[in-house]
Write a protein that binds this DNA or RNA. Structure first.
Lengths: 185, 185
DNA sequence: TAAAAATACTCCATAGGTATTTTAT
DNA sequence: ATAAAATACCTATGGAGTATTTTTA
């Protein structure tokens, strides 16, 4: 059993026609035909009744197709899950610190946040104790829209602090996208 | 993304060790290693932190593994589903009919039931109108335990009725079993 | 220095394609 | 007669193996 086979089954159920289904899957009719045959053979059940026109799912076929949809959906969630994890933390994080502590507190915090949530823009405000120490920040939203944030390049306090050594470069790893239905990309 | 890859991921999470995991999957260490790398590459995320000993899942890895388990479970349900459909109807079906109608009613009914629910043992009782026409039958249970039923061979009324022609042989189609975790066989 | 994981290659099983035949409208 | 699905055959991608190197305890 392959995710691809399940895709084909769902496509065929949707179109009830081998040629149209195969086109939607960007493969040829024999390919789709063969893969469905293979799955049927593996499961030991006919999924579609080809004697009818248009093709119609069998009794068991109906439940198999339903389950196939579930699986493909769950499979798609994996991609979803990854991009969520990448994008979930984005926005501004405004931090106020008193100058004395800044060099000690900020660098490790910074490194950690930059690595884990590269889309979070940290804004430091050094203040003295009397003024309101922490500015109310814009909420960090879970969003997939790319809100352009200014890159974190040499904010004042950082330059004063101990230089961040061995900071791993923030690599933008783009997943290899495919146009399959269970891929969310 | 492959179901196999997800299997490997789950296995590695379980054993936290490439060699042991690969053994449980009946493949070699490089094979498992490669497939996990491929998946990581496709998703654009490291799933496991190999710098630690034993290997531990990354932040995102944890959620991916959880989802992988869901998918494999749902995939296993397909096999489950098929055997359910085959085995769900089993037991005895006692039918009482008056002799006059028997030849007309029984053959088509019989064929249908034998084809669809081969594990159902049909027991016919021909009676005259006065006696209780339908014997209370044992409930047809949904069970996976194989209760040995007497094969349907030449029950009285059938021989009298019009011979069942073109009855498709009840083929026991055994799916090609594999010992993978998402296969229920 | 032993293990554990990654690489390098080789092989072959099979997904996929092209051409054609068979089977239904 | 025509469209649809199956079959035959070929190609090539990639899953899996063996051998080896790199790497971490």
């Amino acid at each position: 059993m392959t995710l691809t086979q399940l895709e084909y089954v769902v496509a065929l159920d949707t179109h009830r026609h081998f040629v149209s289904a195969s086109e939607k899957c960007f493969v040829t009719q024999p390919t789709l035909s063969m893969q469905i045959q293979k799955l049927e053979e593996e499961l030991g059940v006919k999924i579609f009744d080809r004697t009818k026109q248009p093709v119609i799912p069998t009794e068991t076929g109906i439940s198999i197709i339903a389950q196939a949809r579930v699986i493909l959906h769950e499979a798609g969630m994996i991609h979803q899950l990854v991009s969520d994890q990448n994008d979930s933390m984005q926005g501004e994080l405004r931090v106020g610190v008193i100058p004395t502590l800044a060099p000690y507190l900020l660098p490790p915090l910074f490194m950690h946040i930059r690595q884990k949530y590269p889309q979070v823009n940290i804004i430091i405000k050094e203040t003295i104790t009397k003024t309101k120490p922490i500015t109310k920040a814009k909420p960090i939203t879970k969003s997939s829209t790319i809100t352009k944030t200014k890159p974190i390049t040499k904010t004042k306090p950082i330059t004063k602090a101990k230089p961040i050594t061995k900071a791993k470069p923030i690599t933008i790893t783009k997943p290899i996208t495919s146009n399959s239905s269970w891929s969310t990309n």
